[in-house]
Computed example of a mutant assay.
Amino acid sequence: MLRRLIFAVAATATASVAALTAVPTAVAAAPVPLPLPLLERSDVGDRLTITTSHTGNPRADGTFELTCAPAGGTHPEAPAACDKLAQFAKEGKDPFTPIDERSICTMQYGGPATARITGIWRGRNVDATFQRGNGCEIGRWRSLEPVLPTARYQEPAGS
């Protein structure tokens, strides 16, 4: 009887050790996909405040509210702006990420336009600033049109 009990305990222990050592191998063999938070969240509840100035278009300067799902608020191009933000989410991109400090940008001036976007997008807080002081920032601004207005900058006469 004692011999059966020892054999049962030994067999159980061996099976447990085998199962525990097999788990890391099984996990390592099959990569687990990481969730993409921008894709998992819907745009319900998205609410952004967009403040722009010096765009070269007085009707585009000011503070506008943008809500999506359904598109609304005081933003002059709310449906197109929401479509643009949905496109970023579908591609898994964050349009509010600043330009990397290590980026090499062309030394061009796109005008004095500035913008700040605050609020909630895809369930997270947003507080982003935009300007047009170099080629990277101009490209970042343009990629977010029509959320941000098209800036109309003309070189001052005599420059």
Rank of each mutant, 00 (worst) to 15 (best):
R4C: 09
R4M: 10
L5F: 10
F7P: 01
V9Q: 11
V9I: 15
A10Q: 12
A11D: 11
A11W: 12
T12D: 08
A13W: 15
A15E: 03
S16R: 08
A18H: 06
L20N: 07
L20P: 00
T21R: 14
A22H: 04
V23C: 04
P24F: 10
P24H: 09
P24Q: 10
V27A: 11
V27W: 11
V27D: 05
A29L: 14
A30C: 03
P31G: 09
V32S: 13
P33E: 09
L34G: 04
P35L: 08
P35Q: 05
L36Y: 03
L38S: 04
L39D: 06
E40P: 00
V44P: 00
G45I: 06
G45N: 11
G45M: 09
D46R: 04
R47W: 02
R47V: 04
L48S: 04
L48I: 09
T49G: 01
T49E: 10
T49D: 05
I50M: 01
I50E: 01
G56R: 06
P58C: 02
A60H: 05
G62N: 09
L66P: 02
A69M: 14
A71F: 08
G73W: 09
T74H: 06
P76M: 12
P76T: 13
P76K: 12
P76I: 12
E77Q: 15
A80Y: 10
A80K: 15
A80M: 14
A81F: 11
A81D: 09
A81K: 08
L85V: 05
L85Q: 02
A89K: 10
K90F: 10
E91A: 15
E91I: 05
G92N: 11
K93E: 13
D94I: 08
D94C: 09
P95K: 05
F96T: 02
F96C: 01
P98L: 04
E101H: 10
S103Y: 07
I104A: 13
I104E: 15
C105I: 14
G110V: 04
G111P: 12
G111V: 12
G111N: 12
P112T: 13
T114K: 14
T114F: 02
A115Y: 02
R116C: 00
R116I: 03
R116W: 00
T118V: 12
T118G: 00
R122V: 02
G123F: 06
N125V: 07
V126G: 04
V126A: 04
V126L: 06
V126H: 04
F130N: 02
Q131G: 13
R132A: 02
G133F: 07
G133H: 08
N134R: 07
G135Y: 05
C136A: 08
E137N: 09
I138V: 14
R140L: 08
L144M: 12
E145P: 01
E145T: 15
P146A: 07
V147L: 03
L148D: 01
L148R: 00
L148C: 03
L148S: 03
P156G: 07
G158V: 11
S159H: 12
S159E: 12
